[in-house]
Computed example of a mutant assay.
Amino acid sequence: MGSIALDQGASGRVEYERETGGIVKVRFVGDIDIDLLHQSSDKIAEEVKAGRRRIMVCVAEANPLFTPIEVVDEFHRVFAGPVRGTKFAYVSPENLFGKHFMLIEAAAFNAGINVAFKTSEDAARDWLKSDS
């Protein structure tokens, strides 16, 4: 999949990688505006629709330029379809993006999607590969 700067006008970028074990790793780096969030969400949705149900989202190097409510709206916009059984592991240092994560967790729970917040990629991989 490689690295992709989806929005050439943004100072941030989103990198995608398909790992062994069926995990899609998505890394947000730099300033992430709402347009880049929309584009990356659409790309993630394509992966989910293709049957890839283990998504690792790394946000430790990101600076979100959007509100927690915009994250929830985006989650509902993109994942309103048949994505039950999809697992999302968000990787971030503790307490980073706390408000965003709480809202994502609530939206995911209501949509029947499993979400976990981890502080390392190894912990995220372990959870994604588990049956929980």
Rank of each mutant, 00 (worst) to 15 (best):
S3W: 06
S3L: 09
A5N: 08
L6Y: 04
D7P: 02
Q8T: 11
G9L: 09
V14I: 15
E15C: 11
Y16Q: 10
R18P: 02
E19M: 08
G21L: 07
I23K: 00
R27A: 12
V29I: 14
G30P: 07
D33R: 08
D35I: 04
D35Y: 07
L36H: 05
L37D: 03
H38N: 14
S40F: 06
S40Y: 01
S41L: 04
S41P: 01
D42S: 15
K43A: 15
E46M: 13
E47S: 12
K49A: 14
R54H: 11
R54A: 08
M56D: 00
V57T: 05
C58I: 06
V59Q: 01
A60Y: 04
P64T: 02
F66P: 02
T67P: 07
I69M: 14
V71Y: 05
R77K: 13
A80M: 07
V83S: 03
R84D: 13
R84V: 08
G85T: 06
T86D: 02
A89Y: 02
S92L: 07
L96K: 14
G98F: 12
G98D: 11
K99F: 12
F101T: 00
I104Q: 13
V115S: 02
V115M: 01
V115P: 00
F117E: 01
T119P: 01
T119K: 12
E121H: 15
A124G: 09
D126S: 11
W127C: 13
K129L: 15
S130M: 08
